[in-house]
Amino acid sequence: MIGDVALVAGAYLLGSIPFGYVIPRLVRGDDIRDQGSGNVGATNVWRAYGWSLGLPVALLDVAKGLVPAALGLWLGGDWVGVLAGAAAMVGHARPVFLGFSKGGKMVATAGGVALALAPLAALSAAAIWIVVFALGRYASLASMLAAAALPLLCIAFGSSWPVVAFTALAAVGVLALHRQNIRRLFAGTEPRFSRGASSS
């Protein structure tokens, strides 16, 4: 029990590492919060600096969800994996290392958690993201549709109910964090993805 609590706490701390802030600061000397939307997630980094910084941030954000969820799954089963993954996502959204200020929108980190808990469903959701993004060039729309599809894919692939419940709650969280993007999509003012474009 104590080990499970320690794992969940460690997952939050790992999730709180703001790679989208750290990497541009180390490589370029810039504060990503002064670029684009000010978001510290991988999308804003990619838009501001291109793939050379955006890709490492995206991979690290995935890893900080994947590693604690996989470790929790191995040590304690679905419930511990779910709790560790959720803690990593909360850390990403409200990182202690940035004073609990606004973090990223949890998409990449949630993807990492899902990859550990339900790999086939996660890969299928990633395919949805790629198709939607390729067709419309809206990273926000691709992220929301992939997140919304994830719990349904988990059901289709026979995931346990704690994993299905987790992915459903994660989808709600992702949609809530994209509420400004939803308003802009309906208004026709959401920017399409391109390097250097404003993001959120």
Rank of each mutant, 00 (worst) to 15 (best):
A122I: 05
G38C: 09
I2S: 11
L177Q: 07
L169S: 08
G15F: 03
R183H: 09
P151C: 02
L115V: 08
P56Q: 07
T43G: 09
A48Y: 01
G91M: 04
A139S: 15
G50R: 01
R94N: 06
R179M: 10
I155C: 08
S143W: 03
P191M: 12
A70T: 03
L177F: 12
V174G: 02
R137A: 13
T109E: 03
R183V: 14
L53Y: 14
K105S: 13
F133E: 04
A149R: 00
V8P: 08
L141E: 02
L120C: 02
S37F: 09
L185K: 05
P68F: 03
P56T: 10
L145G: 11
A139D: 04
A147I: 05
L83Q: 05
G111N: 09
D4W: 02
A197V: 12
L71I: 14
V96Y: 01
G38E: 05
L7M: 14
D61A: 12
I130N: 05
D61V: 11
N39A: 13
A118D: 02
A187D: 15
A48R: 05
P95L: 10
L60S: 09
L26A: 15
W79H: 09
V113K: 00
Q35A: 14
G54E: 12
I130K: 01
A122L: 10
V132L: 15
A11W: 07
